[in-house]
Design a protein around this nucleic acid. Structure first.
Lengths: 353, 353
DNA sequence: GTGAAAGCGCTAACAG
DNA sequence: CTGTTAGCGCTTTCAC
């Protein structure tokens, strides 16, 4: 049913080559087509609803304008990430969206599909499944597909990583709390299988800030298996109870709690209101991430935000896509990962002490 | 750089045809290849990192396994929608994600791209820009691309629409409030250019419930231009002030307010806490949508939710993709739109009176 | 059992 | 200024 160049050429009694040139108005070399022909052809093409078959063009030119986006899951914040990608993709590029929902097998098949579609570039959130590393290597080394990663590195493959500055998130947060006069600052984290690098950096930032200030650290780490919907209300309840129990049992209670993630803070806010613990009077609370709800007046959570012009997820998406576009255009990578800066935002869940 | 069948055939001294058959292990007709050949070829293909070029296959077969997803914007809730799509797309399908950010011109070019890529199916949120209708028609009528719409109809094109039951959202909500004993129920809405159909149905549902009960209606509609980030904190402030002012000035104040959208309710919660209006003691508040935050204990908003197994956006995505897959497989559409059922969820922002 | 040839839609080279 | 030819990578007849 699609209209082809051949159909137009038959309709007009011209050769396909002429039609092809006329449609794109290509004055290649010295051979200018007559303006009448060009007009006639373009007019006819429009009338017949002709849409060039990108598949054919890509096949012929061995290049495409499609980029693959491979994500581990579609959850809260993904929309901002995708929005960031869109900001930097050129207007002529389209993107495939692939999601593997934390399944290594799916990650593999989605990646195979993207390679099969001969994407000209790739943005991926690697799962960590070692059996898939060779496929990523194939994509980059054999198929020469420029690859930019987010969230975590792919071991053995030297490609750019774009991420938030996890180390400074906790470092600056702890420092900010210290400056408010807090001495006993607890750090609570819920780690997911997906983010071990992140947790590691978070812990280190916190330690450094505490040790530099000569303060004692107090850390409370919990596990949460299953990344799907982990942030939805209720799914963090057990971890939050654990954190609050730890706090309640402290002989010398911390005056501030710094948590891994805003969503954890939201749950703690709930828990505290049930427990009759007033925030920030009884306890200062700080999150990380600055998700939409944190700036919402009703919540007004102190947190660590992107220091850039957009929310962190958007920044990551934007920078990742920007770099990818450069690589696709043949540019060189300077070899450095992009660590996006953060800043502390003090709102009303923290107080001076 | 990509590995081709020809390379494999050269490597092995076989013909491309044999290799092609062996790779897919196709025993077409009676001509079974010798198992040794099959093994040898498959082994070699694996070793060489062969990935079939989908572009070539699609071109040859005039079919593809890519579906186009065209959205007006990427905002809060889009991730659930996309997740819903993914749930129903077959594992062999990939999707293009196109976003036009409310710009008619962009909608056109993205749609053209999708057609150019010869997607086998299309899910679209039409912008309402009449100049683009003919292109949608071209896609469906000329290119025979099955199309499923979400959010709004495309005038003049008889294709399925998947949406939430807007009418019953307000109808059931108003009824629920009546059952709690409320007589004076205000309905406040912030309408966007994008959603006139929705607003219309919302109003009608509310009216019906009030008139059936013999109660007087009180409606307060505000405009909010620019759909991008309309829900972010602060962007609804003016509208919310207007709504609260209307309420404060009522001679006989409404005991309940029903709003168009949970996010509006969140803002009202903030506004009320600043104004010293207690919810639900002074005023019962009900939203529509049941977004993640509504079920969050700290908010606990009474609202209208999906009556299905998943949140509304996910349901819409799931059902839209499911129907599309049926159409792609050659199935017939029964001609009816899919209106997804809703239910009232009473939480703690409403009280009996 | 395997190979040769044609063609999907398009464009680049080269003739005319 | 326009037409002919060849070929991108793949699969499908149809011969051998």
């Amino acid at each position: 049913m699609p209209v082809t160049i051949k159909q137009i050429s038959n309709e007009l009694g011209l050769s396909p080559a002429t039609v092809s040139l006329a449609i794109r108005n290509k004055k290649a070399g010295k051979k200018r087509l007559s303006p009448e022909t060009v007009n006639l052809v373009q007019e006819t093409a429009r009338r017949m609803g002709y849409r060039p078959n990108t598949l054919a063009t890509s096949l012929l030119s061995s290049t495409s304008t499609t980029v693959g986006v491979l994500l581990g899951s579609l959850s809260f914040g993904s929309e901002s990430l995708l929005d960031g990608f869109k900001m930097s993709f050129g207007p002529d590029y389209t993107s495939f969206l692939s999601v593997y929902n934390g399944e290594g097998q799916r990650e593999k098949s989605e990646l195979e599909m993207l390679i099969g579609h001969r994407v000209c570039g790739l943005i991926a959130a690697f799962s960590g499944a070692s059996e898939n590393i060779s496929l990523y290597k194939d994509a980059v080394l054999r198929y020469k597909i420029p690859l930019v990663t987010i969230e975590r590195q792919i071991p053995g493959l030297h490609v750019p990583l774009i991420r938030s500055d996890h180390f400074n998130s906790t470092y600056l947060a702890a420092r900010a709390l210290q400056e408010l006069g807090h001495k006993r600052i607890m750090y609570a984290s819920v780690s997911f299988s997906v983010s071990s690098e992140m947790s590691e950096l978070h812990s280190r930032g916190y330690y450094k800030a505490m040790h530099e200030a000569g303060l004692e650290d107090c850390i409370c780490v919990n596990e949460r298996r299953g990344i799907k919907d982990w942030y939805k209300s209720g799914n963090l309840r057990a971890q939050v109870s654990e954190i609050m129990k730890t706090w309640l049992l402290q002989k010398d209670r911390s005056t501030a709690v710094l948590v891994d993630h805003d969503w954890l803070a939201y749950e703690i806010l709930s828990e505290c209101s049930e427990l009759g613990i007033r925030i920030p009077e009884d306890l200062s609370l700080m999150g990380i991430g600055d998700y939409v709800f944190s700036s919402f007046p009703y919540v007004n959570l102190s947190t660590v935000a992107s220091a850039g012009d957009y929310p962190m997820q958007t920044m990551i998406g934007r920078e990742a896509a920007k770099l990818l576009m450069q690589l696709v255009a043949g540019g060189e990578w300077d070899g450095n990962d992009i660590i996006l800066p953060v800043k502390v935002v003090l709102r009303s869940t923290t107080r001076e002490i």
